[in-house]
Nucleic acid binder design. Sequence first.
DNA 1: TCCACCTGTAATATTCAACTTACAGGTGGA
DNA 2: TCCACCTGTAAGTTGAATATTACAGGTGGA
Lengths: 112, 112
Amino acid sequence: MEDGCEDEVLTSEELLAVLAAIGHPIRLRVIAELAAGQVHVSELARRLGVSRPLLYMHLERLEKAELVHGRLELSPDGKALKYFELAPFHLTLTPDTVLAALRADQQETRHD
Amino acid sequence: MEDGCEDEVLTSEELLAVLAAIGHPIRLRVIAELAAGQVHVSELARRLGVSRPLLYMHLERLEKAELVHGRLELSPDGKALKYFELAPFHLTLTPDTVLAALRADQQETRHD
DNA sequence: TCCACCTGTAATATTCAACTTACAGGTGGA
DNA sequence: TCCACCTGTAAGTTGAATATTACAGGTGGA
């Protein structure tokens, strides 16, 4: 059975982006909320007790790291709602994965 | 065969500390250097091309997260050297581990 | 003695993520 | 029309992490 998870080789830059994206109290809670199913921005802001512009920034950060995915959807009554859903991720963190990331950087610079 | 690695249940606070500790370009390289064996501070600073006071701060951060461990050692000729070594860590990052961390927080607050 | 190493910290700048506030615009329904 | 929702962004502020510089002190050996 296949699933769309990662465990691909990340460059250190990508690794750092993911670590920074997950590593924030609000973003942890965003991930937790989205784990239960998709939610639109205003509703999510209400649940977390966070201002909407602030939530926007956090969602942006999570989306850039490809941990969540947002999509504009029209509700039955014609109102536009921005739904976000979780991108199931799987990342292992050990000395070896750190070494692998730094090795991946050197591969990168060779293709320039 | 046993090893001293983690995969214990972390609170979100502990999880965030580890993520922040690993999530910095210099600290990634520190981990990589120490993966090959213990190194003393001045030597490590030279290898990374980083000032010693700056390196001190990064090592402090890594040590607080228990990712590295420092110990003062006397060389054969009587000079004091501060050696750092890597604490082998193993951390899995998925939506479920995030949920588990937030659940662990609630356990914490009940024991107050 | 002086030099070449080393440890350790305090005080200060600088940079950047995080957060707030305020705005402009859209829809459907009362 | 007004109200209650929604999306989206452009300021500006603040505060913590990062980084620099400068200092005080120790050792062994030439």
